[in-house]
Simulated scan of single mutants.
Amino acid sequence: MLPYVLNWGVVATGGIADVVTADMRKVPGVNVLAVSSRQLARAREFAAKHGVERAYGDYRELLADPDVHVVYVATPHGQHHEVAKAALEAGKHVLCEKAITLTVAQAEDLVATARARNLFLMEAMWTRFNPLIRDVRALAANDAIGEVRTIRADFGFQHDFDAQDRLWAKEAGGGALLDLGIYPVALAHALLGEPESVTAVGALAPTDVDADAGVLLSYPHGAHALLSCSLVATYETKAEIVGTAGRIQIADPFYNPTRIVVNGVEHTCADGGYTHQIREVVERVTAGDTESPEMTLDDTLAVMRTLEAALHQIGVDYTTVA
């Protein structure tokens, strides 16, 4: 039986780890005990900033720490499978940044490992736990806008090309779809489920990752999602769900909204951020659950199948680096 206070280990010290760790410290039941980085000096600097007791120069040292209960994997996508699998094999529960892996096969391997070892595993799709997104899902499920027919969502910004940058480097899992496109795809999945068909177009960067993408997800009886993402053009990061009896507009940024408009009526919420998904992990792990009912492992696998199908149509194959 785990104690109520869960000791967390953070693998990597980049921007996302910095922001999420700051939010971890706001959640009851969380003690950020350890951090690792390939450079011990960076781990120590991160530890000092966030009040973390232990700093390691290798993630394997963190995984060997018997006092760590939960591991948050915040490395670039290309390392997610390696680190998350090692954490599960070390007997740790895992929260892994999205996209959970580079390929469906890798994701299936992580899910099988977690289930075989009876350990908690969740992809860090924080949008699912935003209070307004929870409201959107409930409203759509309860026919507040009738039958959902169309979803439109975009996420893009200009990011200067640099072959060594993680957003452009193939070995790091770079490209628009895995980093940005996963948000609109996951939103469509949350409301309409896994599509019957996927159609994608896009352009390749010199590093053979997708620079941008347009994706059409098709569902039974003509329902569809029109989604786009880009690392070369800036979009308004809004979303709209249109039904037979109304519409829901999700304000920018739709992946962490503070405002939605439902059939002309505004709803607001200032309590966004990463704390909601951290609370979910704490509640599930302390209850002995091995996955979240709001962000199931089957959901993660379904989104990965859609992303992989789109990537293959654009000409991106991560099996060469996975």
Rank of each mutant, 00 (worst) to 15 (best):
A141R: 04
D298Q: 10
A74P: 09
G174Q: 03
E194G: 01
K238W: 02
V262K: 00
A41R: 13
L132M: 03
A17E: 05
R60W: 10
G273T: 01
C269S: 04
Q164T: 11
Y183G: 08
E123D: 15
D162G: 12
A223I: 03
A141P: 00
Y235K: 01
R166C: 02
H77C: 09
L231T: 07
R166A: 03
A169M: 11
S292F: 08
I151T: 04
R149L: 06
T320H: 12
A211T: 08
R247M: 03
A105F: 09
T290W: 13
H80Y: 05
M125D: 12
D65F: 13
R284D: 06
H276G: 05
S292L: 05
K92I: 04
S218E: 14
V201E: 06
V5A: 14
A22Y: 00
H267N: 02
P253Q: 01
L227K: 14
H93G: 06
H224L: 11
E123W: 06
G202C: 13
G272Y: 00
Y59D: 15
R54M: 09
G91M: 11
H69D: 15
T275A: 13
E283K: 10
I250H: 00
G202F: 11
L191W: 02
F254E: 01
A225I: 01
E147N: 12
D271S: 14
C96E: 08
I248G: 02
I182E: 07
R115A: 14
L297M: 10
H50Y: 11
V35C: 11
T290C: 11
R54A: 09
V20F: 09
Y183H: 15
T300W: 08
A310V: 08
A200Y: 11
E294K: 02
N256F: 07
V303G: 01
Q79E: 14
V285S: 08
R152T: 14
V71E: 14
N118I: 00
H224M: 10
G272C: 04
R115H: 15
E97N: 13
V11Y: 03
T319I: 01
E280M: 07
V242A: 07
E308S: 04
F46H: 07
A112V: 08
P195T: 07
D165W: 03
V209S: 05
A22P: 00
R166W: 04
A17M: 10
E308T: 08
T21N: 10
A287C: 07
D179P: 02
V30F: 01
H50R: 07
A12I: 00
L95M: 12
Q79F: 12
D23S: 08
R115L: 14
T300G: 10
A302G: 02
T75F: 03
A270P: 00
V71D: 09
D65A: 12
A223D: 12
R54H: 14
A310I: 06
G174V: 04
D289L: 10
N7G: 01
R247F: 02
E236R: 01
